[in-house]
Computed example of a mutant assay.
Amino acid sequence: MSRSPPLENNMKWGLVFGAVLAFNGAAHADSIPRYDPPSYCSKVSEVSGGSRTIYNGCLSMEQEAYDTLKSSWGQIAESAKSYCDEVARSSDSSYSILKGCIDMEADASSSEPEFRY
């Protein structure tokens, strides 16, 4: 019975592991980021003295933004997804901010201003 040298086995496992990571990374890139809307909305509400009206409105806005993004996420440019996710995370991870950024990126991509001298 012949045995593969240890280096060859390690290379095989490395390739398998790398393929699994690449597949999971590709699948993850196509899924909408996971934020924590209740935590975000609690922070927003705290700014206004802990208002439940503000919290409930915030949570409704986050849900609406998430639902809209979820249905169109696959059609959004990867560069916009990446950039806008960074923007949203820097603002305590808000789907409303993510959606607003994606909308602005789409608008900017569809019309390029002309510079005039």
Results as ranks from 00 to 15, higher is better:
I32Q: 10
Y40W: 03
H28A: 07
A77W: 03
S109T: 04
R3E: 05
M104C: 10
C58T: 04
S111K: 05
S31F: 09
E46V: 08
G50V: 02
T68D: 06
N9R: 10
S94G: 08
K43L: 13
S90M: 14
S71D: 14
A26H: 05
N9Y: 01
F17C: 03
W73H: 10
S51W: 00
I54N: 14
L21V: 10
S91A: 11
M104K: 02
E86A: 15
E86I: 13
R89D: 06
W73M: 11
P113C: 11
A22N: 02
Y95H: 02
G25W: 01
E112W: 08
D103P: 03
A26V: 07
W73R: 12
L21Y: 01
T53D: 12
S110G: 15
E46G: 08
W73L: 11
K12Y: 09
D92G: 08
E114G: 01
D67F: 02
R116H: 12
N56T: 06
A88V: 05
C84S: 13
S45E: 00
D92I: 15
N24E: 05
A106D: 11
K70Q: 12
K70T: 04
S111N: 09
F23H: 05
A65P: 08
A106G: 09
T53F: 05
S110A: 14
A65Q: 12
V47Q: 04
N56F: 04
V87Q: 08
T68Y: 11
G74E: 11
G57H: 00
Y55C: 12
S4R: 14
P38M: 02
A77D: 00
S72E: 14
P113R: 05
I102N: 06
L21R: 00
S51C: 05
S109M: 10
W73Y: 08
E86F: 14
C58G: 10
E64R: 07
G25S: 07
A106F: 04
H28R: 04
N56A: 11
S111P: 01
M61W: 01
S90Q: 14
Q75M: 15
V44C: 03
E114H: 09
P113Q: 12
Y55G: 14
W73Q: 10
V87N: 13
R89K: 15
